[in-house]
Amino acid sequence: MEHAIRVIGLTKKFLKQKSNAEYFLQPFQKLYVTALDNVSFDLPHGELLCLLGENGAGKSTLIKTLCSLIWPTSGYAFVNGFNVTRNDVQHRRQIGYVICDERSFYWRLSGRRNLQFFASLYKLPTERINRRIDELVEWIGLSEAIDQRFKGYSSGMRQKLAIVRGLMHDPDIIFMDEPSKSLDPNAAHNLQELIKYEIVAKHGKTVLLATHNLQEAEALNHRIILLHKGKIQAFGTMPEILTQSKCDSTYVIKLTNPHPDLPAKIVALPGYLRQRPETNSILAFEFNMMPHNASEIIRQVVEWDGSVVSCYAQVPTLQDIYRTFIGDS
């Protein structure tokens, strides 16, 4: 089997909920909202792919379609070779689904009873279920709380339990929909480490993770899909996306107490891009990264009696790349 996930021209249109005015003016016309627009990509086994996009970009729709929970309007999607529209039991056996929805557990039951119930739906033998619960909760650090009622869990513990539930039947491919949504920065960091080093690197699972958190996507540092209004804007590793974005590295030069005429002179220098906001006494200018550019600029500024505080190369962050594709939305 070549790919864990193969998506070809996947499109999903939802029937739009009409406003009262639309009902009155267009009573028989059906209005659609395009959630996924001709999405295509392949994901090899044992890889981690971040679906990155703002709210409403189509991330959850894509994950749910791959889980056979939403039917596509057109196109094809194969998970481990299974066509998702066939809703094959074998397909369901091979996927795990981790959602951030805290509602998706029985709050009056303990974590253990919840896991026992959900694992039973995969027809696992009872001994194996109990063994697997012990293994996984130990591994994820939830052993002490596993016999407490779910309603007493913190957001981080609930998220951990959701991850354990998704892994109970040892699926090959795991879909995670904003797994760190309600976690504090420390817990989110631990979760990212867990996904990156344990689930993917150590256990060789394929993970498709949806997030709107740029830092998370950057921290996971694997393949990324930038999704905007249902369309793939960019797909690849960080360096590949950087190339696609044409978002170059730049030099930032900071000056202190410059002569009033100096900014106008600097703006006229070759490679000048923009002035960056700084404190009152310091001015910062950004230049294209060209060969010998920095030394030439510094020499010129010093010649104009400018006092250079610092000069450094600015490598574009994922946020910069994101902005070039999607804007500030």
């Binding site: 039991v89 689904y97 509602r103 739906l121 995969y122 027809k123």
Partner: peptide, 15 residues
């Protein structure tokens, strides 16, 4: 549906 469990049930191996 209200508890958000429907999807988890339908994604399982249960018929």
């Amino acid at each position: 549906q209200m508890m958000g469990i429907m999807e988890i049930l339908l994604i399982s191996q249960a018929r």
